[in-house]
């Protein structure tokens, strides 16, 4: 029986990690600036490709993953500076611009790097409980997801930057008047968002097929999580991921993946119907 229980936890942790890691970057960008970043999947792909490239050069996996996240973050800052910055007053246009960017990046990768690159293999390690065997790496992913949440909590709640960022999010004009350098805060936030997307790609790179369009497999789930969560990363995205992971896991286990997917989307429609601004609207209000 304990094997069954552990198995349920493991499945939950797996879906949760996937949702958190793929959505965190998107949630920050959306929550801070109201920008829907359609190139989110391409930052994920970037993280994965950089990781694989570095590992093939002989860099240890963990370091490669960290470097990949940093690379994606830096590219994010550049993209913010060149494109997104000019579109803050037009959130829907930023959607279009980032979508254009995503088309350019995927196809250019295809032309430059080729249609597929060889994977690097998941780090060894598995364990058995009852009749089941589990991959240790999946638990590492879960740990990373939790670490990302803690890291975000510390960054946004305990640092000076966090205070500024939250002030900017509440009222950008007021924050600016009080001396916050909002432009810089936006750039850093976008960079963090892109870096987290890169981290997601870096962490999942060993477990997946590597093709230029790989980011697309993350996109629907991450959008759904962000939307259910609402604008607040900490009070929205995390509970949304818990909630969606439970629905998805339960349906996957008893009715198969297709019902899991359809059920999750239905849940989204219903939640938005009840809470038009996402889960965080309730939680934030309660918190006050």
């Amino acid at each position: 029986m304990s094997a069954e229980l552990f198995s349920v936890f493991y499945q939950f942790a797996d879906v949760f990690a996937f949702l958190i890691l793929s959505a965190a970057g998107l949630a920050i960008v959306f929550g801070m600036m109201g920008v829907i970043n359609m190139a989110h999947g391409e930052f994920i792909m970037c993280g994965a490709y950089v990781t694989v490239g570095l590992v093939k050069l002989g860099v240890p996996l963990a370091i490669a993953q960290a470097l990949a996240a940093v690379t994606a973050g830096l590219i994010g800052v550049a993209v913010e500076y060149l494109i997104v910055r000019r579109l803050y007053k037009r959130p829907l246009d930023s959607l279009l611009a980032t979508w254009g960017l995503s088309l350019i990046v995927t196809q250019s990768m295809l032309l430059i790097v080729g249609s597929s690159i060889t994977g690097i293999g998941t780090p060894e390690g598995s364990f058995a409980i009852g009749g089941y065997t589990f991959s240790t790496y999946r638990l590492v992913l879960f740990a990373c997801a939790v670490a990302v949440l803690i890291g975000l909590y510390v960054t946004f709640m305990k640092t000076r930057f966090g205070v500024m960022a939250r002030a900017t999010m509440q009222n950008a004009a007021m924050a600016k008047a009080l001396g916050a350098r909002t432009g810089r805060i936006y750039a850093i936030s976008f960079g963090i968002g892109a870096g987290l997307a890169g981290l997601c790609g870096a962490l999942y790179a060993p477990t997946m097929t590597l093709i230029p369009t790989m980011g697309a497999t993350f996109v629907v789930e991450s959008f759904v999580t962000v939307v259910v969560g609402g604008a607040n990363v900490l009070l929205g995205t995390a509970p949304a991921a818990v909630f969606l992971a439970m629905i998805r896991m339960a349906l996957n286990a008893s009715y198969g993946q297709i019902i899991g997917q359809i059920g999750m989307l239905f849940a989204v429609i219903l939640i938005i119907r009840v809470l038009p601004e996402g889960l965080s609207s309730v939680l934030v209000r309660r918190g006050r």
């Binding site: 994977g119 293999g121 998941t122 058995a128 991959s135 790496y137 477990t207 997946m208």
Partner: peptide, 9 residues
Amino acid sequence: FEQAAAAKL
């Protein structure tokens, strides 16, 4: 395939 191999299926 990668995930099944990692879980020692």
